[in-house]
Structure formats: structure tokens, C-alpha cells
């Protein structure tokens, strides 16, 4: 009676033309991740955002994209690493970032589209600046995280970014071990993105109906390139998380 190994080899040999290595499990590469600082999202992503890859956080305004990105930067700068924020719409709020724990002296902020110089309603120049700046920063290396903020740019314009640009970003991010986080209204990087998170607003939290104290968000994992399909199916596809106002007192144990 042939052994199990011999049988496996025989079956694999028979099916070799149609299914190469049919019974041999595919080796799984464990990707390095960086926690986002939001436990619900980290659980959804099995650890955090992938290092050396493109992650997209998409959704409409007030869907928690920026809060998530700033929380991610806070965790990254906390480890003494250097980050960059390429701001296509000049929307970054330094006060919010500082209140969330981002070490501002470890953050390089590139404010695209100098006010008054570029025509309003024509975001191509700002987009062009943002893409060129991202390219430079990715090529320079040394940045642990880079946020490309296209959150206020309409998807109509964002989708016109050539796929070759995202391929180039993916290669550069992989080479320099930089986590590129793209904030946008719709997925833009297509197959170049390792992770796509779709965010949506849920409900506001108030204190005594007089003060806005926080907001709940829903986040859905749209795509996870490095996770096997079987494993993904068992995981919850969506999760909820909440953020509190910067004026709210921190709860202490």
C-alpha cells in the first residue's frame, strides 16, 4: 500500500498540468504591520496597516478617515519614527494631530496648492503637486509612514491618476519599507493597494444633548491582498469604532 506522501506526489504529478502543486499548501508570507492605534481596526486588519505597501482609507466627509490616519501617525511617531503628510487640499489640522498624540517635530507636512495661486475648482495642479511630492518622499526613503491626503478631492479627479503612478508608488514603498496611506473618497490605487478600508459615519455622541462628545464610525475591509481568501471569509467584514472630541476628558482606569 503506497504511503500518503507517495499518493500525494502521484496525485500532484497527475494534475501538474492543470493545478501545479495541488496538494501542497501555499507558503504564507507574514507581512510586517504597524498598528493604527484603533483596536477595532487593528483586529479587522489582523495587526494593522502593512509596512512597505499602499493602504487606502476611503469614504465621504466625516467618515473618520482623517482620525484614523492621525491615530496611525501618532502610533508611528511614538516609536521615534518619521512621517510625512502630503496634503493635496491643505486640510490638515495641526491642533487635532497634536491632541491625538502626533509628535509634530517628526512630521513633514507638504501643503500643496498655494492659496490664491491655483484656480479654484481645478484640482489638477494640486493633484500634480501632491503626486510629485509623494514620489520624491517615497524615493528619498527613511519615512516610516506617508499619508497622501486626497480626502477632499472628488473621486472624478482622483480616478484620473494613471495606474502606472500607483505601480511606481507600490514599488517605491516596498523598497523603502514605507507605509503609504491614501485618504480618498473612492478607491484609486486599484490592484496596487494592499489594503482598502471603506469608512462611513454612523452616529454622533453627545453629552447632555448640549455638547458633541464623539462620533462612531463604521469601517469595512474592502480588500486585503496579503490575506488568503479562506482566512478572510472567517473574519468579520466590518467593524465599528468611535472617536471622542479633543475637549473630552480622558477616561482613566
Amino acid at each position: 500500500m503506497p504511503s500518503a506522501t507517495a499518493l500525494r506526489i502521484q496525485i500532484e504529478h497527475t494534475l501538474e498540468r492543470r493545478f501545479p502543486a495541488a496538494l501542497t499548501p501555499v507558503p504564507r508570507t507574514i507581512r510586517e504591520t504597524t498598528p493604527t492605534g484603533v483596536s477595532e481596526v487593528d483586529k479587522l486588519l489582523e495587526g494593522g496597516l502593512p509596512v512597505g505597501a499602499i493602504s487606502e482609507v476611503t469614504g465621504p466627509e466625516s467618515s473618520g478617515r482623517t482620525s484614523l490616519a492621525i491615530s496611525f501617525l501618532a502610533r508611528t511617531t511614538e516609536e521615534g519614527r518619521v512621517c510625512a503628510w502630503v496634503d493635496a487640499d491643505d486640510a490638515f489640522d495641526a491642533e487635532s494631530a497634536a491632541a491625538s498624540g502626533v509628535s509634530l517635530n517628526q512630521l513633514l507636512w507638504v501643503r500643496c496648492g498655494s492659496a490664491g495661486k491655483l484656480p479654484k475648482g481645478k484640482p489638477y495642479a494640486r493633484l500634480d503637486q501632491a503626486i510629485r511630492a509623494t514620489d520624491l518622499l517615497l524615493q528619498a526613503g527613511g519615512f516610516a509612514a506617508l499619508v497622501l491626503d486626497l480626502g477632499s478631492t472628488s473621486a472624478e479627479y482622483g480616478l484620473r491618476i494613471p495606474l502606472a503612478t500607483w505601480f511606481r508608488f507600490r514599488q517605491a514603498a516596498d523598497r523603502t519599507r514605507c507605509s503609504l496611506l491614501v485618504l480618498s473618497q473612492a478607491p484609486l490605487a486599484q490592484s496596487s493597494a494592499a489594503v482598502v478600508l471603506e469608512c462611513a459615519p454612523l452616529c454622533a455622541k453627545t453629552r447632555d444633548e448640549t455638547v458633541l462628545s464623539g462620533y462612531s464610525y463604521e469601517v469595512r475591509s474592502g480588500r486585503q491582498r496579503f490575506t488568503p481568501a479562506l482566512a478572510t471569509a472567517r473574519k468579520p467584514p466590518a467593524s465599528t469604532w468611535s472617536a471622542t472630541g479633543t475637549w473630552e476628558r480622558e477616561k482613566r482606569a
Binding site: G37, V38, E61, T66, S67, L68, A69, I70, S71, A74, R75, T77, E78, E79, G80, D89, D90, A91, F92, D93, E95, S96, A97, A99, S100, G101, S103, Q106, G151, S152, G214, Y215, W241, S242, A243, T244, G245, T246, E248, E250, K251, R252
Partner: peptide, 18 residues
């Protein structure tokens, strides 16, 4: 480096887009 002294809050804060 701020690695030694963390000033990150325990809860995630709402961020503004100006």
C-alpha cells in the same frame, strides 16, 4: 525622539479637516 515619553491619548480623538 518622543519614544521615551508618550503623549498619545488612550482614546482616539476626532480630527478636523480644515
Amino acid at each position: 525622539s518622543s519614544a521615551a515619553e508618550s503623549n498619545a491619548p488612550a482614546q482616539t480623538r476626532m480630527a478636523l479637516r480644515r
